[in-house]
Every structure is written in structure tokens, then in C-alpha cells.
């Protein structure tokens, strides 16, 4: 492999990983944008989505389906996981966050951490399900193999640079979702209501906007994005585990803060940046320094640009 090919390959890997991070980061940033809550449970909602995907795969025996049927299976997973994670995230808001709307921000934050623990443990129980895809459920906490529904052959034939169908799958799922999300927020009535609530929820309520419902819908959409991300993650990495939500959530949260929390393009930019920095650091520095470099960059950006790369510079609301 020539140096330029290595660089190109790392860029492809970085972008694919970054896209997945960005998709999760959008869920963080949307919720933060509207109620200024860092929804710590988001990463774990994402993790439960991946468990649902594996359960569906096992229930229908999708591994044995012919190729084009498997494609339909992936669509089924995407739709079910999005609906499931959206509903779960909506329920968290309804049960754990809405009653605390008037309490201090700290109570809300602690409540979110609690929800995260509950979801992690649900994942641990889920992993113990006696199904073949969960290796019989004997070792509940063990990482689970997610069968390769998207093949790994090189689309570029004999070229040294590899682009596998899984890379394409990541793009095919995430880019339309991001476009749809921007359209929804910028161009629709619901989007306008969301922006209004984000700007000033009291004024929005006075204008007749059902604030709680708009917040609930925001949670649903954020969760649904996490659901899509969980399927893409599982297809790309082929391993899921009850602890994956923590690391994925951490990366996505960092991406959201890096890009400017509350900003949708910021989350995407942050995700792609982290994905690429990780890949380049693995190649040109050393893997053991990668985390240090990623968080070092985060610290530097927050020192010199506290609102992140694309964050608004307006003052924090009180």
C-alpha cells in the first residue's frame, strides 16, 4: 500500500465511524437544544436498539435468508429499532424528566444518570435471553456476535483501498436521515415549534404551542435517530454488548460538545472530526494515544471557543 492509499483508507474508515458517531450525537444535541439536558441515557437507549435488532435477526432467522431478503430484513430492523428507541426515549421524558421540568437542572441531570443505569441493566438482562443469537444466553454480559448481513468484499475490486458494502450502508442510512432532520427543523411547523420552545419555552406556551408535546416529540426523534444508529453500528462492527452505550455515548457527547451542543450541523461536524482524528491518530501516532488526542482536542477547543465549532455565541440562558 502506498502512503496516499493508506491516507485515503484511513479517511474512509474515519468518515464511516464518524457518521455513526454523528447520528448518535444528533440525539444528544436535539435534546440539549430544547431543554438544556444532557440525556445520559441516550447512549444506553441506542444500546437497547442494537439488542432489539439482534433479537429480530434471531427471531426471523434472517441469517439464512437469501441476499435481497436480508436487505428487507435490514429495513425491518431499521424501522422497528427507530420506533422502539424513539418510544423508549419518549417514555423516559414522560416518566423521569417531565415531572422535574420545574426542578433545578441538577435534579434533571441526576435523573438522566439514573435512567442510564436502568437501561444498562436492562441490556444486561436482555443479553441473558436464551436464544441462539445470544449464544444461548449463558453469559449475559459477554459481547454478542452480530452476523454479517452486509458483506465485506471490496467494492473496488483488486484495489489496495477497500470500500466495503458496510461503508456504503452507513452513508445510505445516515445522509438521508440528516437531510430529513434539517428539513424537519428548518422547514416544517413542528420544526418551528421546536425552535420556538428552544428559544423561550414560556413565550412559546403563551403563543399556544403545546410545549410538553413538542419536547416529547423531540425526545422521540432523538431516540429514533439513536435506533437507526444502533442498526448501522451493529451492521458495521458486527459485535454488540450491554456496555457499548457508554463508549458510543461518550464519543457522541464529545462530538456534540465539539461541534457546539444544540447545533445540528455542529453535531455532524463534531462526529466526523472525531472519527477522522481517531483514524489518523491510530495511523500516524499510536493507538494508545488516540483517546488522549481526542479529548485533548476537545479541551483545547473548549478553552478557545467555549461554545464549540458551530455553537451559537449567545449567552447561556439562565
Amino acid at each position: 500500500m502506498q502512503d496516499s492509499e493508506v491516507f485515503l483508507q484511513q479517511l474512509i474508515t474515519g468518515l464511516s465511524n464518524g457518521m455513526i458517531i454523528a447520528l448518535i450525537a444528533l440525539g444528544y444535541t436535539m435534546v440539549y437544544g430544547i431543554i438544556e439536558l444532557i440525556n445520559f441515557a441516550h447512549g444506553d437507549v441506542f444500546m437497547l436498539g442494537a439488542f432489539l435488532a439482534l433479537t429480530l435477526l434471531g427471531m426471523f432467522g434472517m441469517e439464512a435468508w437469501p441476499q435481497h431478503w436480508q436487505l428487507a430484513g435490514v429495513v425491518l430492523m431499521l424501522v422497528s429499532c427507530a420506533a422502539f428507541c424513539g418510544t423508549l426515549n419518549w417514555s423516559l421524558d414522560r416518566l423521569a424528566y417531565r415531572p422535574l421540568r420545574r426542578a433545578s437542572k441538577l435534579s434533571l441531570l441526576v435523573s438522566a444518570i439514573g435512567c442510564s443505569f436502568i437501561c444498562t441493566n436492562l441490556g444486561l438482562f436482555w443479553g441473558g435471553m436464551p436464544m441462539d443469537v445470544f449464544a444461548g444466553g449463558v453469559a449475559a454480559a459477554a459481547p454478542k456476535d452480530f452476523p454479517q448481513l452486509v458483506p465485506q468484499y471490496n467494492l473496488l475490486g483488486e484495489s489496495a483501498v477497500r470500500v466495503v458494502p458496510a461503508d456504503i450502508a452507513v452513508l445510505v442510512v445516515t445522509i438521508p436521515l440528516m437531510i430529513a432532520l434539517v428539513y424537519l427543523v428548518k422547514r416544517t411547523r413542528l420544526g418551528r415549534a421546536m425552535r420556538a420552545v428552544a428559544q423561550d419555552s414560556t413565550a412559546a406556551a403563551l403563543m399556544g404551542i403545546p410545549v410538553d408535546r413538542v419536547i416529547g416529540v423531540t425526545f422521540f426523534i432523538g431516540g429514533a435517530l439513536g435506533g437507526f444508529a444502533s442498526v448501522v453500528y451493529a451492521l458495521y462492527n458486527n459485535t454488540i454488548g450491554f456496555q457499548m452505550g457508554y463508549r458510543a455515548g461518550m464519543d457522541a457527547f464529545t462530538a456534540a460538545v465539539l461541534g457546539g451542543i444544540g447545533s445540528l450541523p455542529g453535531a455532524v461536524l463534531g462526529g466526523l472530526t472525531i472519527g477522522c482524528v481517531r483514524a489518523m491518530s491510530d495511523q500516524y501516532v499510536e493507538t494508545r494515544w488516540t483517546n488522549t488526542i481526542v479529548f485533548g482536542i476537545l479541551v483545547l477547543i473548549l478553552i478557545f471557543r467555549p461554545s464549540g465549532l458551530l455553537g451559537s455565541t449567545r449567552r447561556e440562558k439562565v
Partner: peptide
Amino acid sequence: FDGTDSKAANYRSLVTKIKA
């Protein structure tokens, strides 16, 4: 010779480095 991150989601970029 390199130390890996045992919680990473994947090691694709490391594999590229190895393959090179």
C-alpha cells in the same frame, strides 16, 4: 508494537496501519 483501547467499537484504522 502498539497498545489497543479495549473498549473501542472497532479497530479498522489500526488494521489499515497493520496491513500497510
